[in-house]
Every structure is written in structure tokens, then in C-alpha cells.
Simulated scan of single mutants.
Amino acid sequence: MRLNELEIYLNQLLNTTRFHDYCPNGLQVEGRNEVRCLVSGVTASLELLEAAVAVNADVILVHHGYFWRGEDPCLIGMKHRRIAFLMKHNMGLLSYHLPLDAHPDFGNNIQLAHRLGFVETGRFGEQNIAMLGTLQSGALNLKALQVTIERTLGRKPLVIGNEAKLVQRMAWCTGAAQSYFEEAIQLGVDAFVTGEISERTVHTARESGVAFISAGHHATERYGVQALGEHISQKFGITHQFIDIDSPV
């Protein structure tokens, strides 16, 4: 399929015009017109770009692309090396940030929920991205929930809370969504899951009695872009490969 056709389809599917984001969503770097092979990944690091070239990708689909609000706009240093590499290999870059977090089928939040056994019952937070829900299995103590998350994501989460606490009502938002924690507390949840933690969040969890689980920014955001890439592959008959460039954060 044509690159511009793919971008139009994704922009419509993810409803990009609804979001006020920190970066441009859609085609960030233009590549060859014909798309036969798509690589997806979490972040458009140079390592991902090199891996994509190795499998002859025509375009890369990521959650974390380039041109973030407030950053130096000059094409120097790391940014120059990345974009120069894409252009040298005539490889396109498609990036979707908040629209990918929020999508009801292919979004990071719903895809994480499927894997951890969370059932969505509502949404909250900025632009209605964060999710409320319950545990499909019924109430678990915090220790058991921690074990489930560790086994599923392949990394040990940082948990603030009493291990014996019973958890049934959940809130979650992938990535760096610790700023939603206080709103989640007001909504009466037992625990909040996100990717990162701030120093002040530790005290908020201890004093509120609501558990806070930091499960990893990268680890919680691997699944939306995979699901979207597979959808594109099946719908348009192009090759798709997810390449996981590990991050400890």
C-alpha cells in the first residue's frame, strides 16, 4: 500500500484531531512511497532504526517519536543522527502518542488491561485517557497482584502499599501517568498502576492507603503498537514485525 494511504487510515482510526498532544501525530519523517514491510516499536531510538533496516522495513511505527514540545528544534546531535539515518535509508516514521494510549481496541491502556486481567468500567484524567476498572479474577491481595504483573511484564514492579491489602477496584494508565494518582484516589480505587513513579507519589500512597504500582514506562507501553501493527498487517496484507528494544525504565 502507499505510505500516504497508511497515514490517512491511521489518523482516522486513532482520531488524532481529538487530542492536544506533546508532539505531532502521524507521519514525522517521509520515506519510500510503497509500504510492504512495517516494523513497530516503542521508541524511535537509533537501535530500533538499525534493526528495522536489517529486516528491510519500509516504515517504522512507534509510540515515542520525535519533535517533542519544548525541545531544541535544531537537527543536531542525536536528533540529526536518527533523522539522517532514516533519510539515508529512505525509511518512513509514523508516530502516535496520546491517540495510541487512548484507543479502545489498540490502545496501550486497553492492551495492558487484557494482559493483566483488568476490566474497564470507565475513564478519567486528561483527555479521558486513564482507565478505571475491576480485576477479572475478583479481589486479590496486593502481593498476588504484584506477582501477576511481574510474570506478565517480565520485570519486577515497584509497589508502595501493604502487601496484604485487598485490591478489587483499579485505575491504570501506561507510561508516565503518576500525575493522575490523586484523581484516582478521589475515585475510590484500591490501587493505581502506571509506568513511572515520582518521589512525592510515595508519600501520597502511604498517607492515602491507596497502593501505587510503578510497572515500567517501556514495559507498560509495548502492547498497543504491537496490536496496531498486527491490525495493519492483517487488513492490508503487509509484513509486520515488532522489535522490542529493551529499556530498564
Rank of each mutant, 00 (worst) to 15 (best):
A57G: 05
A102I: 01
A44S: 15
Q146C: 13
A51H: 07
T134K: 14
N128V: 05
V55K: 02
M87K: 13
L112D: 10
A44D: 09
G41I: 05
H103G: 07
R18D: 11
D58W: 01
A51F: 02
M131N: 12
G133R: 10
A57F: 05
A144R: 13
M87E: 13
A102Y: 02
Q127Y: 03
L27P: 09
R36M: 09
P73K: 10
K79M: 11
D21H: 06
D72V: 11
E47F: 00
A52R: 00
I60W: 00
N33T: 13
L132Q: 10
G31P: 08
R123E: 12
N141M: 03
D21Q: 06
G117C: 01
G125W: 07
L100M: 07
I60N: 01
Q136S: 15
V59Y: 01
A113P: 00
E71M: 08
G70R: 07
I60P: 00
F106V: 13
F118G: 01
R36V: 00
L38A: 05
M91G: 00
L27R: 07
E34T: 14
L142C: 07
H114V: 02
V53A: 12
R82M: 13
L93T: 04
A44M: 11
L116Q: 03
G125V: 08
A139T: 13
V29N: 05
G125A: 06
D72A: 08
G65F: 05
T17N: 12
E34Q: 15
L100A: 02
N141F: 05
